[in-house]
């Protein structure tokens, strides 16, 4: 892998007042992406960080992750989602070393560029100097996106950028 100090580059560009070539700040934000449910102790140790969900069966299979590993097993209430209007994503940050982590949507959360939908999420972290509970956490959330004229969804804000192809449902793929 050839990771670059991207944050540094961006910081320098901002400090020097330069624009970022290719960045289209005029894209119309679509804030209708919504968090359906979220949790901090999800039980999906081997699950991919982003999973595309296109029907109730798939939703039923994955929603139990949000309940964590608890006893007695909780009654799972499936959210009422019209899959004709919405795409649903399961998004997980993976294991985190302490309490104080959670996933939320960024602002703006959802934009469409040509045939790509961009979803921006935020992994909230405890303050660097905070004293925190030394328990492993595993934040995750379910998000619904309005269907539109796009064929792929890119999820930004996790350790990597993740892409899912809308046409080929479930064919999640590591992007870069």
């Amino acid at each position: 892998m050839t990771d670059k100090p991207l944050s540094l580059t961006l910081a320098l560009l901002l400090l020097t007042g330069c624009s970022i070539p290719g960045a289209n700040l005029a894209d119309t934000p679509n804030t209708t992406a919504q968090v359906i449910d979220s949790a901090v102790q999800c039980s999906d140790p081997n699950q991919q960080p982003v999973v595309f969900i296109s029907n109730k069966k798939q939703l039923k299979k994955i929603i139990g992750h949000l309940q964590g590993s608890v006893l007695p097993p909780p009654t799972v209430h499936l959210p009422n989602i019209d899959f004709n209007r919405w795409h649903v994503l399961y998004i997980s940050s993976g294991q985190q070393p302490t309490a104080g982590y959670s996933l939320t949507l960024a602002e703006p959360a959802f934009t469409v560029q040509q045939n790509r939908a961009l979803l921006n999420v935020v992994l909230n972290r405890p303050a660097p100097d905070a004293m925190v509970a030394a328990v492993i956490t595993h934040p995750c959330m379910l998000v619904k996106l309005p269907k539109g004229n796009y064929t792929t969804i890119e999820v930004h804000g996790l350790d990597e950028v993740w892409q899912v192809t809308v046409k080929k449902e479930l064919s999640n793929q590591f992007y870069y």
Binding site: Q41, G68, S69, V70, L71, P72, P74, A134, V135, I136
Partner: peptide
């Protein structure tokens, strides 16, 4: 999964309910 099972609360519905949960950590 091989977590440590102990007492917990669940406030997903607003009110706290007693449950038990497997978690892990030096905690």
């Amino acid at each position: 999964y091989d977590g440590i099972l102990s007492t917990l609360a669940d406030d997903a519905t607003g009110a706290r309910k007693p449950i038990y949960s497997f978690t892990q950590g030096t905690s």
